[in-house]
């Protein structure tokens, strides 16, 4: 029973971590129709910036989070304006823009190595000395915060995208840019903002995961593939689906590892994903956006 509870808690934490990254994938897709494969490496940047502000510079954690989010928002905005927008203006097909995102990912990963170094670093605890016992196992307070923040961001994004004017403008800019512009939506600005917002979400993931898994140049890349699978499983572009998909991947991976074999956890997780998509191609939340690609 203790093992089951341990695995359950671990799967929830891991799943919410995947979910946060999945949210950023879904947000970009929902608001600009792009597959943002650069996101995992942006998460690494978020973690390193948070580490720099909090651990190295000794700033209070909320200030470090705020600074990281501001810097990362600007970075996301700049990537959209400097790279994505320029490619769209040159009528580059979505496939090539997707490939460009991979290239940007490599560039960011190598840049992080150049600037922050290749050695994994310890991200200081947010609440030093606090030890939480849950059902007999020790849980880091950061892990509980991560779960709470994931659910909060999911709810906020779901509300924002569906119930606010800006969110509606973002969806409109993604669905039909020309029509959106004809009704006064500044598509260029809106797309930039949506990238900035997505990058802020992924930065939050990085700065929350740092104290749990420590910070390294491959932190985002290691988590990104499963998170993408989670976004697809949940219904690519759906905020609630992103968290559910992320949680599903976390649970499959953890329980396969715990009760079958750690050798087969990724194998089984991806087989489940493919089989599920055979049955329900639009994902758990029946998100039809993926069919438009």
């Amino acid at each position: 029973m203790l093992k089951f509870v341990t695995l359950f808690i671990s799967a929830t934490i891991l799943g919410c971590t995947y979910g946060l990254i999945s949210l950023s994938y879904s947000l970009i897709y929902k608001s600009s129709g792009m597959m943002a494969f650069v996101n995992p490496d942006l998460m690494t940047w978020g973690a390193f910036l948070g580490f720099t502000f909090y651990t190295l510079m000794g700033l209070p954690y909320p200030i470090a989070v705020l600074l990281t989010c501001v810097v990362m928002f600007c970075m996301g905005f700049a990537i959209q304006k400097g790279v994505v927008r320029n490619l769209i203006k040159r009528n580059v097909t979505p496939m090539y823009i997707t490939l460009t995102m991979f290239a940007m990912g490599y560039i960011l990963q190598n840049l992080s190595q150049l600037i922050f170094g290749s050695v994994p670093r310890k991200f200081d605890s947010i609440i030093p000395g606090l030890k939480i016992q849950l059902a007999g196992i020790q849980v880091q307070p950061e892990a509980i915060i991560c779960v709470g923040v994931s659910l909060l961001i999911m709810a906020l994004l779901q509300f924002f995208m569906n119930k606010t004017k800006l969110g509606t403008a973002m969806r409109a800019a993604s669905m039909d840019p020309m029509a959106a512009e004809s009704v006064g939506v500044d598509v260029s600005l809106i797309s930039g903002l949506s990238w900035g917002l997505s990058t802020t979400v992924i930065a939050a993931a990085g700065i929350l995961c740092g104290p749990i898994y420590s910070v390294s140049m491959v932190l985002g890349a290691n988590l990104g593939a499963k998170a993408f699978a989670g976004a697809v499983l949940g219904g690519y572009g759906n905020m609630i689906g992103a968290i559910i998909g992320g949680l599903a991947m976390g649970f499959i991976e953890t329980f396969v590892s715990g009760y079958i074999s750690s050798d087969y956890k990724s194998l089984i997780a991806y087989i489940v994903l493919i089989l599920f998509l055979f049955v329900k191609p639009t994902g758990i939340m029946n998100e039809r956006a993926i069919q438009d690609v």
Partner: peptide, 12 residues
């Protein structure tokens, strides 16, 4: 090398 969470194998 792509793993970040080792809880399940460690729980075993």
């Amino acid at each position: 090398s792509a793993d970040t969470d080792f809880t399940a194998p460690l729980a075993n």
